[in-house]
Write a protein that binds this DNA or RNA. Structure first.
Lengths: 280, 280
DNA sequence: AATCATTGTTCTATATAATGATACAGACCT
DNA sequence: AGGTCTGTATCATTATATAGAACAATGATT
């Protein structure tokens, strides 16, 4: 299986998957969007995010659609296999989206290659291990090994985090800092008092990160949660992903941090090497 | 590379997603389907299944769409965040579908509950462990623990198998045999010479399965691959999933089969119990 | 380098196809 | 039973997606 091109830093408009229902469907950026497609996908998203089957009126209200319109869309989605209609006149998402989504991840192909290294890091540290890919000014966690310790961390698989204040993100950021600096410059949102919100400080940190070979986040995103990350490269030199460890700082001290960081770094290096040898 | 069929135990009309380009989007069964939505989703599916980014004309040919039409759909999908356009004028799927799909699985909620039991079965047997849900006359594997042995089995996570000849499937089939018998009756496709293709034999097997509490597949789907399954029930009594073990028969003998089956059965029972206590 | 063959993108008239109001039919509750 | 919710079907209207052609940007071949 060939190593696919990944989605990278791009001009793609980032659409948040917020749980709030109030996203307006019509106000697009100058260009028009096929409205039926947009509405249909919103219905699907809503259904996918619901823990329970939903009714037509309910959905129509939530998405600001006509009852008839919602009904028709549900019918269509049902015919297409994305939605299942229950006997009690409710609708729910089928596993079809999931199956399609799996293919996207499979085609990424990094998962499989990185998995043993992630396991290794987990065995060694017992902390949460993340595999992340860049997504505009965020990272998305495409895989995760749960911490073996009682204290669990926040971010689930599929979740995302800002690129400038988590280990994996900072590793990826430093790898493409030239391209991204100007875009991130005015968007250095603060999350804790440790978050780097000044570009001059970020400049220094990124330089240090690049030199060091791994990234450090000392509670810059979540209070008292440290994370460390290193970049995985394609044979082409593209920074395709990052591997990282996240841990509450009570579990850490200076030497343990160094040990973990070195492990993270060598894990990333190993995955990069494996990507070399695997066929292109 | 066809997308697996997805069907539920419902009145949902099934639309095949063949890989061939000739799928007619308009000839529906009386009722019409929002064509824009259908086309858009097909484009997305196609892109998700591709290992490499695709061009407009290429896609338009493959899906029998106008170049303009394909282009517009891609544009829309791009605006909606489902697709990313690259600098070299190609398009690829983003991780958004995957993220949405994850939510569907998360809301299924069985995964998390069944996982420890699956792990336990894995530790005990070293064979491949599956968690499957019914999908019309198939099962879909929603989770899997890989075999620790060198010989790996076939079916990946997200994949599907016919309900009448694999362990998990037969367990689910026996749980709903009343409803499903008539439908499966004329569709007993044979895969090996062990496959049950006569309804009378299936009747007996299902009766035995129900009595026994677990299902046996002795190479009925794949030559020399045995599998065993037991049903997981919701508090409502609905057969919602099945847990199973799959192994090459060289790894097996009579007593090991019995041991494994009992383990599978008690794993399923335990998950069922956990679903009782967990909130609905 | 220059031509040629492809591919991606923009534009616009046209007709298809999605839309929302209305009406009807089952639920469910009191 | 009566009333008030639901979900579903119908249909005229018009917005909206569509196809086709023209243009621009490739990049391959000579």
């Amino acid at each position: 299986m060939a190593i696919p091109r990944l989605r990278f830093w791009s001009e793609t408009i980032h659409l948040t998957l917020s749980g709030t229902a109030s996203t307006n469907l019509t106000d697009k950026i100058g260009t028009t969007v096929d409205s039926t497609l947009a509405k249909g996908l919103r219905v699907l998203e809503e259904l996918a995010a619901s823990a329970h089957p939903r009714g037509v009126t309910e959905l129509s209200r939530e998405l600001a659609l006509t009852k008839s319109n919602a009904h028709r869309l549900l019918r269509s989605l049902s015919h297409l296999g994305y939605v299942k209609s229950n006997a009690n006149r409710t609708y729910e998402a089928t596993l079809k989206v999931w199956q399609i989504g799996l293919k996207v991840i499979e085609n990424l192909n990094i998962n499989a290659i990185a998995e043993p290294e992630m396991q290794r890091l987990s065995d060694m540290t017992g902390e949460a291990i993340y595999l992340a890919v860049p997504d505009d000014l965020s990272v998305i966690y495409i895989d995760k090994v749960e911490s073996t310790r009682p204290i669990r961390s926040f971010t689930p698989k599929g979740g995302s985090a800002p690129i400038h204040c988590v280990g994996t993100g900072k590793a990826l950021l430093s790898a493409n800092y030239g391209q991204l600096r100007n875009r991130i410059k005015e968007r250095l949102v603060g999350y804790t008092d440790q978050t780097i919100t000044e570009i001059s400080k970020l400049d220094k940190d990124m330089a240090a990160t690049a030199k060091r070979g791994y990234a450090l986040d000392k509670g810059e995103y979540r209070e008292n949660i440290y994370s460390f990350g290193a970049t995985i490269y394609l044979p082409t030199g593209e920074a395709i992903a990052a591997i990282g460890v996240s841990a509450p700082n009570i579990n850490l001290n200076k030497e343990r941090i160094v040990t973990i960081c070195q492990a993270v770094q060598s894990a990333a290096t190993r995955v990069t090497q494996l990507l070399q040898t695997s066929n292109g």
